[in-house]
Design a protein around this nucleic acid. Structure first.
Length: 436
RNA sequence: CGGGGCGUAGCUCAGCCUGGUAGAGCACCUGCUUUGGGAGCAGGGGGCCGGAGGUUCGAAUCCUCUCGCCCCGACCA
């Protein structure tokens, strides 16, 4: 992408409304713009991050055997009356009336709708278990939106729903999702810690939230540092092995982790002093097992082997995709700007033409850019070097390839790693080999 | 929802108290000089002072109402 022809409105000054670093940086780097309280437009660079996160979530959900689908944002109120949540959910749910005076809601979550779809389409025990998910915009009319996309009213969420024939199957599905979540977060470049949680309005009796440490977090959390070291990507747990999943779950449960609501001083005292991690935490996902909470009142049953009906056991599994953009920045930035993990960066590298218009600089830049046009952001603007350096650091792409008049004539460029500041002057060939 | 604050140029803000021709810096446009960490000089464009009423000869400024946004708290993927 060529910066000279792109909508990347970086700001030198911080907009007055932004209080926390991720919000400030998202505005300054031109990722998003607020259009109403808690509602954001995603500009080209921000959307690329959202898409990169979604792609990882999608790949890992698919690997765990979940099927992608897409449910609408608007739902009829009737479904919510069936489950009893139309009244229970409260003013957080946005209620809408259409021209025929029919009550609709802008979905804050999709348990009712997926249960309705399942009861229409699944008739036999032979068709279970199944897990379905979608990545869709949600709306929750928060009393007080804040922290940019971390607590918006409209947000992008991956939500998955599992249907099993019995408790053991449901717990297995729950564990499978938990493993998928740990792999997702690790690939995103963050360390999210699973913590036993309250179930809240979703209901049910088994739930974990996934929390990353950040000074601006919303609740106090406590956990054993060993949980930061576990490598889920290299682990050999197989999704189709209940024994593996049980082992994985046992491993997680070996270590202490709790939010302040569930904090247990006695158990905390048994964690070695050096291993104690304590601080503010941001929730980036939550999973629930809730049995027949929806299947039963909504009349979803399948024929069992003997012909008798079985009411499926369900679970739901959410990841705040748009919130993760803010959360990742909270966890990874410095005074100069964002430091994107490679897996979610909008581009792999920034290519800085320090003197656009100089024949040698232009030639080297076009040559380099032409080799990976989809992976580079070419700063071909008519700006001074200082402005380009500052914007490159602000945007936080993992690599910077700096083409200046000093080296360009000799075919040499400078490669800078954003995370460490480490630089090297290299030939074009070596630079590309280093970055790609 | 309770408490507090703020709406003036794209951004950050001054002006308001004490009414009298709408300002600064940055950004933007033109030209020249400059060119490896947010350049300099000269010129230029851009505002229904959130909106509606009112007071007044005259309102960004005073009064009333309203809308929006932010912060603190209780609540939350």
């Amino acid at each position: 992408m060529r910066l000279s022809r792109s909508l990347v409105p970086t700001l030198k000054q911080t907009p007055a409304e932004a209080q926390i670093s991720s919000h400030r940086l998202m505005l300054r780097a031109g990722l998003v713009r607020q259009t109403a309280s808690g509602i954001y437009a995603w500009l080209p660079l921000g959307l690329r991050v959202l898409n990169a996160i979604s792609a990882i979530v999608r790949a890992e959900q698919n690997a765990a055997g979940a099927q992608e689908m897409l449910m609408p944002t608007l739902q009829t109120a009737d479904l919510w009356r069936e489950s009893g949540r139309y009244d229970a959910y409260g003013p957080e749910m946005l209620r809408i009336r259409d021209r025929h005076e029919r009550d609709l809601v802008y979905g804050p979550t999709n348990e009712e709708m997926i249960t309705d779809l399942a009861r229409q389409s699944i008739q036999s025990y032979r068709e279970l278990p199944q897990t379905l998910y979608h990545i869709q915009w949600k709306f929750r009319d928060e009393m007080r939106p804040r922290f940019g996309v971390m607590r918006g009213r409209e947000f992008l969420m991956k939500d998955a729903y599992s249907f099993d024939l019995d408790y053991a199957g449901a717990v297995n599905s729950y564990r499978r999702m938990m493993l998928a979540y740990m792999r997702i977060f690790q690939r995103l470049g963050i360390r999210a810690i699973p913590m036993l949680a309250d179930t809240g309005p979703i209901g049910g009796d088994l739930s974990h939230e996934f929390i990353i440490l950040a000074p601006t977090g919303e609740s106090q959390v406590f956990y054993d540092a060993a949980l930061e070291q576990l490598d889920y990507l290299r682990s050999s747990y197989a999704y189709d092995s209940p024994a593996d999943l049980a082992n994985f779950h046992d491993l997680i449960n070996t270590y202490y982790a709790a939010t302040e609501e569930k904090h247990d001083q006695a158990r905390w005292a048994t964690v070695a002093q050096a291993s104690r991690r304590e601080g503010r935490g941001i929730e980036v996902g939550q999973i629930f097992y809730f049995g027949q909470k929806y299947s039963k009142p909504m009349g979803f049953s399948v024929a069992g082997p003997g012909g008798r009906p079985i009411v499926p056991e369900m679970g739901s599994y959410g990841i705040g995709v748009s919130r993760l953009v803010g959360a990742i920045i909270e966890a990874s930035h410095d005074d100069a700007g964002i430091i994107w993990p490679e897996s979610v960066a909008p581009f792999r590298a920034a290519l800085l033409n320090l003197r656009a218009g100089d024949a040698a600089c232009d030639a080297v830049c076009e040559d380099v850019y032409g080799r990976h046009p989809g992976a580079m952001l070419l700063d071909d603007r008519d700006e001074r070097a200082g402005a380009k350096f500052a914007d490159a650091d602000l945007l936080g792409l993992p690599w910077q390839i700096i083409v200046g008049p000093r080296g360009a004539a000799a075919g040499r460029v400078e490669v800078k790693r954003r995370a460490t500041g480490e630089r090297a002057e290299l030939s074009v060939h070596d630079a590309l080999a280093k970055v790609f």
